[in-house]
Amino acid sequence: MKAALEYMKGQGVLVEVLDRRWRGLTVRDEPEFGMPMQDMFFCMQRAEGLSFPVLYLVNALVHSGVVNQHQLAADFFGLLRRERDAVNVAALTKLLGGKFQEFDVCPRLKDAQDWAARKPNLLHLHSSRKVGVDYNAEMRRLVITPTRAYCMPPQLERSNRVVRH
């Protein structure tokens, strides 16, 4: 704790200990304390059996605050591995539209997957979002700020030669 307080003082943070009763409080050593972070923001980079479009939408859910990163447990990824990509993309896109925060996101994902699986026209839309006849393309964006980075939900935008190649 003393090292942490000294570090904060060195960073210009006003440190004032108001209650001396906690003098016996011990804090476990943190080996990474004071070291630069490895990752600047939370990002699921790999998950066995999941494609990039599905992982991108999982990151977008976390970055938009719909899902907490601690809710991404093995059963969540198990649900994603059981369905094909088109169903998962449609289901995760539906989850992105709702602003909810609940402790167990798995039932919500399962409901969205069941809903998407019953809509073959929707699955065709999500599986063919490359450049179409109307020259639109699905664009993914990463917004980087001084303190965070956000994976934005994919949007259809007008395509051009650079995007097509």
Rank of each mutant, 00 (worst) to 15 (best):
M1S: 14
A4L: 15
Y7R: 12
K9A: 07
K9F: 05
L14F: 13
V17C: 10
R21M: 09
R23D: 13
G24K: 14
G24N: 15
V27I: 13
R28T: 11
D29H: 11
P36R: 07
F41S: 05
F41N: 08
C43Y: 07
M44T: 03
Q45L: 14
Q45T: 12
A47V: 14
E48T: 10
E48Y: 12
F52E: 12
P53M: 00
P53I: 06
V54A: 04
Y56W: 15
L57E: 04
V58G: 02
N59E: 07
A60V: 09
V62K: 02
H63A: 04
Q69M: 11
F77H: 02
A86K: 07
N88V: 03
L92K: 06
K99L: 14
F103C: 00
D104F: 08
D104H: 01
R108P: 00
Q113M: 10
N121Q: 03
L122A: 02
S128T: 13
R129G: 12
K130V: 01
G132F: 02
Y135R: 11
E138I: 06
V143W: 07
I144H: 04
I144Q: 11
P146N: 03
P146Y: 07
C151F: 15
M152W: 06
M152F: 09
M152K: 09
Q155M: 15
Q155P: 00
L156N: 09
L156D: 12
L156S: 15
N160A: 11
N160E: 11
V163N: 02
H165G: 10
